[in-house]
Each structure stands twice: as structure tokens, then as C-alpha cells.
Design a protein around this nucleic acid. Sequence first.
DNA 1: CCGCTTCGTCGAAGCGCTTCGACGATCATT
DNA 2: AATGATCGTCGAAGCGCTTCGACGAAGCGG
Lengths: 347, 347
Amino acid sequence: MATMHDVARLAQVSVSTVSYVLTGTRPISQGTRARVLAAMAELDYQPNAMARGLASRRSRILGLLLPMDERGLGATETAFVTGAAAAASAVGYHLVLSPVGGGGDLDELRRLASQRMFDGVVLMEVQLADERVAALQEAGVPLVLIGRTGDASGLSYVDIDFEQTVREAVAHLVGLGHRRIVYVNHSAEALNSGYGPALRTRDAFVAAMTGHGLEPVMIPAEDSAAGGRAALAAALARTPDLTAMLAMNETAIFGILGELTARGRSVPDDVSVVSMVTSPQVAELATPALTAMTSPGSTMGRIAIEALVRHLDGSGDERHQQLLPCSLEIRGSTAAPPSRQPMGADQ
Amino acid sequence: MATMHDVARLAQVSVSTVSYVLTGTRPISQGTRARVLAAMAELDYQPNAMARGLASRRSRILGLLLPMDERGLGATETAFVTGAAAAASAVGYHLVLSPVGGGGDLDELRRLASQRMFDGVVLMEVQLADERVAALQEAGVPLVLIGRTGDASGLSYVDIDFEQTVREAVAHLVGLGHRRIVYVNHSAEALNSGYGPALRTRDAFVAAMTGHGLEPVMIPAEDSAAGGRAALAAALARTPDLTAMLAMNETAIFGILGELTARGRSVPDDVSVVSMVTSPQVAELATPALTAMTSPGSTMGRIAIEALVRHLDGSGDERHQQLLPCSLEIRGSTAAPPSRQPMGADQ
DNA sequence: CCGCTTCGTCGAAGCGCTTCGACGATCATT
DNA sequence: AATGATCGTCGAAGCGCTTCGACGAAGCGG
């Protein structure tokens, strides 16, 4: 493995000159630069990352802190990670995935942060009250959140624009002629514990429906196929003549579809279904393929990394705050509602 | 940020002594060790990862090289990654995810390897002929593969035991009384291009069926819901009275299920379905939930990391080669075949 | 033509840690 | 009681790089 010394010797310059060629920190004449570059090429020189990190006090490593306690990453999170990694490598950084368990690993996190291995970190799955944020800030590590804490005023974050996303989804259904739309949210516990996306979409749904002069009917659902089936039963009990459903819950929606079919209601002829914050891969699995609000996973990853790097490279701008809407992708699960009452009843 | 010097001063010992306490490289007396530990605690000392890496020539960072060109990671790959990350952090290593695009990024890979940032790497999605392997070996980076190259004799790898997995799946179906079982593999292109899992399962299916005195019927399928529907059509054309299907294709299987329902064949009453190399999360999405051969994702990740670390820490054993079977998880998609011809015909 | 700034380069001093050789002290052996 | 071994500790020499101050050589205005 060639070192800078070898390059310097071959190019007949000092090591510092080689370093300046590499980093561009000081002006170097054309001739010298060319000789150094040639020497590097000849020796197949690669700077040693550790030595660089030690001397410059910048590791050029970014941490992506994600809780991996549960069942791993969904497609949305995966897209986020890949987008972030690609963005990082595009600007010459490495991205380290650190599975910091959501709960007691706070000390572990502190230790990580103090090891000076990360120039900055992206924190995923942020809760409304997230103690990891404080821990990281105390350690003085530049930080970008995915999601938002309750008071995120002083922080950088990238999050989904739930208001806009819900508004668009509702507009799509209303535009098709639907009037009785039920929203299937996350579980009641998630709502009670202050899970941001659940709360924000709830409020947005009420606002959107009210704006159209419609009644906002909402049902919570456990994150499972069974939860989806139960939610559908509850929804039909409450609004027997519903013609459309909007679901926040990537897992429950498969239960909803299954139960709908089991009850002899066809999708989308009898009931239209829109899935929120969903990846195309998952949407395509369903039969029919789901019309969905596609989450901007990889874009979010890219933006988060870019904001972080901009901060690190000192382009001054503290506090990057941005909301991204999901985009409507129409597939086979939505259509106009049945022209008149599908299963008997008045009018 | 406290340094080793600060600790040494406070504990009234030399820096080297502090280092020995930290690394256990040389014996240290009880009293001294205690004083040093106390000083560390008081100063909230954390060793600087870069300095350590530079001086010891070991970064304690492991690379996980995975191609991220396509649609991101499935649940199986995710489980693998989380398992690997957990195992790495358990033995004091960090895991860096590097999205090395499958194709032209070979130079990028070489560069990465030469930067001495990784003590070792795990290579995912290995092809039968994979040039990345050679590139890494030339760079002298310890290596563990997930999957196998054509000739893996000199390499360390962890892979799924496809033979055993297929055998178990077939045994399950045969045990239920099925005789006409169709195997839905990956696409014809995948087979032609020598994709290992597709070839290995194909051969294993032939062997298993023949072993039971049954005829091995096989159909390729594109990796999509549409591909699954087409495959079902082809399967029914070829074996109209099939009673069970075994599918290797996590995506196609949803198309198969949808089409089965559309054709009025109920699962599992008319047709049993087993999904191979599938994660529980995906299996649960289907209606009914899929009986599946669950891929040992996180176990594989753990084993791969442990093998790599054992190699690095010089416990001598080169070449760890291991195959892991998927485990049968019975859910709702398999049952005994219909007692006698479900749709007319002889006997 | 003189003093001044700017340019291009060098040498040396670290960055915070590991590791090697050295050395007094302790301990078991003959 | 003399002789090694072994134990516990220290000082110093790097690991490969960045960065600071210095300095000769140009380039400039007056």
C-alpha cells in the first residue's frame, strides 16, 4: 500500500505538497500538480481513511441511526436508506448504518457519538418526544431528523407532508365521486402515545373531509392483517354504505382487501381503496394493485444527507426544515363508486 | 473531549499503561487498573476511533457490500442486514453499508478496499461469476460471501441450503397427500444466466419429486404479480388437476394467489401453496397467510459476521463454509388435497 | 530600483492512539 | 544466595495524514 511519502518521493516534492494537491487547500502550480498526480496514478495511491480522519478531525463518515428492534425495515425505509447512501457516496462520504435499539441503548448512542466516528448523523423514526435528540446534541454531533419531534423549531428535519398527502388522497376519491370515505389509521395505542404520523394524518383527514362538506369517519387498526380485517368490520358496522377507504397502514390494508373479498365486495367496483405512504413494491403485491400515495423514500434520504453535508461543509445554513408530499399513483384499486346503491336500500 | 493523556495524568500513570488497561494487551495490576478505570469514568473518556484505527491498523469497521440498483431490499435481505449489524456491534465492530452498484462500480469497490477503512467485508447477492470477489481478494480484504460463486472452494461463504429446503417443502406437501405439485421458479432468463438459487432449487425439486416417485413439473415466472398470473395459467394448462404449488418467487406468488381466486379455485381447499425462501412478514400479508419456508435472514447475517470476525481476530480458521436451510412455517395456505376430483373427471 | 504582497513550496509539529524494547521488582529454582 | 523468569510499568517511536509558519521567488506600484 503506497503512502503519501512514496508519492512525494517519486514526484520529488514534499509530503505537504502532495497533501495540498489532494485537498486543494493551497495553490499548487500546474507542473507540480501534474507530477504529483502522475506519481499517484503510477503507485495506485489511495489515501488512508483513518490517517486522514485523525489529522483532519473529520471522518467523512455519516451515521444513519435507525431502530431495528421490530421486524426490520419496510420498503419505504429501505428506499430511504438506499437514497441516503447514494447521496452520501456522491459527495464523498460513507454512510454507516447503526442499529441503535429504540429503547435503553441511549448510553450506547452516547458512546458512539463520543467516539468521533461520525461527522454527523441522520436519525430515523423520530418520536414526538425523543431523548436521542438531546443525547446527540449534548455530544455536539450535527443532526438531521427524519420525522419531527414535538418541538422541532431549532432542529433540522425532513418529514412527509402528511397534510398535503391526505388532502390529495381525499381529493382523488372525491373527484371520482366518493362521498362516504373511511380512514383507517394506525392503532389506538399509537394515537394515544402521540405517534406523529398517526396524529397528523388524523387531523388532516378531518380537515380535508370537512373541506369537502363530508363527514370524516375514522377507525384505528392494529398493524397486522388481522387488524385490517377487524377494522373493516368496524368500518362497515359504522358506515355500511361506505364506498371508499383510505388506509395509513401498509400491513392492515392486506387484511382489509382480503376481508372485503370475503364479504363479496369487489375492489374497486364496490369499494375503492387508497393506501397512504406506501412503496410501489408493496402496492403491486395486492390484487388489484393498490392506488397509493407513494412515499418519497429515496428522495427523503438524499435530501437529509445533502442538508447534513451542507451543514458540515459549513455553507452556513443551520436548520434545514422540509416537508415532502407523497405522490398519487393510480393503480387498480380505485374507481368511481357504484352508480347507485349496490346492495339494496333507499334513494 | 478527554484524551488518553488526560486519563494518564489523572491516574498518575503513563499513556501506555492506560492503553494496556483498555486493550488488555499486557498485564496490569489490580490497583493500577482500578485507578485508570476511575479516571476514565471521571473524565467520561471515550477512545478516539480514528486514532485507534490508525495506530493499530484495524478500523473495527466491517463493510456490508450490497447492490442497491433495483428496488431496494426485500424483507429477507433486511433481516440479513439487521442480523449482521447486531452481530457486529455485539463483538465491538461497526457495520458500514456500502451500496456498491452491481455493475461498473468495480473501480469504486477497489478504491474503497484500498482505503483501508474496512477490516473485512461481507458481499451480498453474489453471482455465480462475480468479479467483485477477485477485486476484493486482490486488495487483500478478508471476505465472506452470502451465496456462492461457481467455484467457491477457496472462499468463505454462508448460503441457503436450497436442496434441504426444497426437500422439506416437498415432503410437507406429499405428507398432506399431494401428488401433482408444480414448481414455480424464477424467470427463464434467470435460469439461463446461471442464477444460483434458481438452478439449485430446480435440481433439488427434480430430485425430491423423483424420490417420491412423482413427476417434477416446473414453470418459470417473471418476478412480478403479472408473471405469477401467467405462470399459473401455464401450470394449469400443463397440469389441469394440480393440487399444490411450490413457488420460489416472493413477488410472483401474489399474482398466483390472485389468479387462483379469480379462477374460482380456493386456497388451500382446492390448491395448496407453499412459498420458498420467504420472510414471515411477507407470508402474513397474503390471504390466507402463506405456509412458507422461512429464510434464515438474520441468522445468516449473524453467522457471516461471526465468521468474518473470527478470521480477523486470527482464531486461525480460514474458509468458513456453511449452508442454512429455511424452516417450514405452516400457515393457512396448505391443506390436504380435495378428497376426490374437485371438478369432475374419472376415478 | 525598493519595499510589499502574493504564489508555491518545504519542514516540522502534531492528531490520539498502539506497541516495542527496556528496566526495576518480585518470585520461584537450584 | 545467586540466577533467571515473570510481572508491571514507562518512555519513545511511530501509524499516514493535515496544517501552520516560514521562506525564496515573482510581480506590483511608486
